[in-house]
Amino acid sequence: MRVQLRHLAHVRSGDKGNTALISVIAYSDPLFEILCEQLTPEAFKAHYRGAITGEVTRHRLDNLGALQFVCEGALGGGVSRSLAMDNFGKALCSAVLGFEVEAPDRMRNLLVNLAEPAAG
């Protein structure tokens, strides 16, 4: 089944200069495996469609079930000189909640807040 990442993980943005730091934290270990496989740095950057102008580096933390994405050139030249209203990029992470992943049907019960399929 294809589902949005928001059912597998929660996210948080941080900032340092012109670099956005986006944490993607799986709700459980089996879901983390799916993310490690499908949310590659390349796929992550492509999902942001040009909003990240520099390199994307991914750090994998098995002990936390989390991926940390270091996104260079994502904050309009830096927090202080950015013309963006959200100059810290605090809400930037929420875009990845819409990233689509392929999850096996047997993991349906691990997905968080997934609407029940319509009856019939």
Partner: peptide, 16 residues
């Protein structure tokens, strides 16, 4: 655990 993990990674370039 979720709130601690979010804060642990917050604004961290290299978690190692």
């Amino acid at each position: 655990l979720g709130s601690v993990k979010e804060q642990m990674l917050y604004e961290v370039h290299d978690p190692r």
